[in-house]
């Protein structure tokens, strides 16, 4: 029995990756939940917006790398991120002007917006593939580890190593900052409050002199920024592939719904719930159990509850269970 090593193994294989993935999902889910709360539909193009943001960032990263600009130990992508955000904001605003605004003027039903977002999804997907191709792109550079397994072992003398990738640390730190800024904005600024008011009661917001078009514009800007950050962090941590981003829709939707659609706190909680369930259920617990149980009880198999290919199934099962018991999600939906 060796609880310390068990704890390190657990941290290394479950907690750290879970935190990073959870942060990425939370940022994605925040974007979905804001659109749901304020524009009142589920944006199927969100995954592709993330892909677009990541793509613009990657192009700028390559540009910076080619002229020798770097952020030292941090990934160059961080320098490119603001440009990625600006590009995505521009795309979101142009899309809103040319596509969505018409339906607002028509007072179209939310489900029509959902269909429109399908069209936007196809187009964005096409644009991204057209520009950068459907293949895998790696754009991570700089220091690979904050602490590598070998250094950790040397430092502590433990048998198990703990590796924290720079991208993982960066993901969590960025997510914390972004979420803090977002909540400050929504709860403390006049514009943020007007967005919440519009989400709460559109008619009354109008009567209070809040301009819906401005609210919508700010929403798209924030959502574009969130999507880009989430997309870039995910790409840095794993890799960038347009199709993967499209497939992220399911866990992102699941996170937003589990937390309660329209509720930003719920989106964050949902992101971590989904991420940790996926990681824990598809992780092979043999190592951790070997350390924490007496030898006589040590398991023979891998003690993996489900193969990693079933991670979607996990998100979905959690979703159903939550909805069965709390139909509006864990944090009552709708309180942007």
């Amino acid at each position: 029995m060796d609880l310390l090593n068990a704890l390190v193994a657990l941290t290394n294989f479950v907690i750290v990756p879970g935190l990073a993935y959870g942060s990425q999902l939370a940022l994605g889910a925040l974007g979905v939940t804001l659109i749901y709360g304020i524009l009142r539909f589920s944006n199927f193009a969100h995954g592709d917006t993330m892909a677009f943001g990541a793509m613009v960032t990657i192009l700028f990263t390559w540009l910076f790398q080619s002229v020798g600009l770097s952020a030292g130990p941090l990934p160059t992508a961080l320098l490119a991120l603001p440009f990625g955000i600006l590009g995505t904001i521009a795309l979101a605003l142009v899309t809103d002007r040319t596509v969505y605004r018409f339906y607002r003027q028509q007072k179209a039903k939310p489900v029509i917006f959902v269909m429109v977002s399908l069209g936007v999804m196809f187009m964005m997907n096409g644009i991204v593939r057209f520009i950068i191709g459907p293949g895998d792109q790696r754009f991570t550079d700089g220091e690979r580890f904050v602490i590598s397994a070998r250094t950790f072992k040397k430092l502590t003398g433990l048998q198990e190593g703990l590796a924290i990738k720079t991208t993982e640390a960066l993901t969590v730190i960025t997510a914390v900052i972004v979420v803090a800024v977002l909540f400050w904005f929504l709860n403390k600024t006049r514009t943020g409050k007007s967005m919440r008011a519009y989400s709460d009661n559109e008619d009354l917001a109008l009567l209070s002199g809040i301009n819906p078009e401005r609210v919508v514009m700010y929403t798209w800007m924030i959502v574009a920024a969130l999507a880009t950050i989430a997309g870039v962090l995910y790409g840095l941590d794993k890799s960038f592939k347009p199709f993967t981003y499209f497939q992220l829709l399911l866990p992102i939707f699941a996170s937003a719904i589990v937390g309660g659609l329209g509720n930003p706190i719920g989106a964050i909680a949902g992101g971590f719930i989904i991420a940790f369930s996926e990681v824990t259920i598809t992780y092979a617990w043999k190592k951790v159990l070997n350390y924490s149980l007496p030898d006589s009880l040590a398991p023979d198999g891998l003690v993996q509850l489900l193969s990693t290919d079933y991670k979607f199934a996990v998100s979905f099962a959690i979703l159903i269970v939550v909805l069965l018991f709390k139909p509006t999600g864990l944090f009552k939906g709708k309180a942007v």
Partner: peptide, 13 residues
């Protein structure tokens, strides 16, 4: 469908 559309607080004026 509550998983894709949100009609709470929607404008009816």
């Amino acid at each position: 469908d509550a998983s894709i559309t949100n009609v709470k607080g929607i404008g009816t004026m």
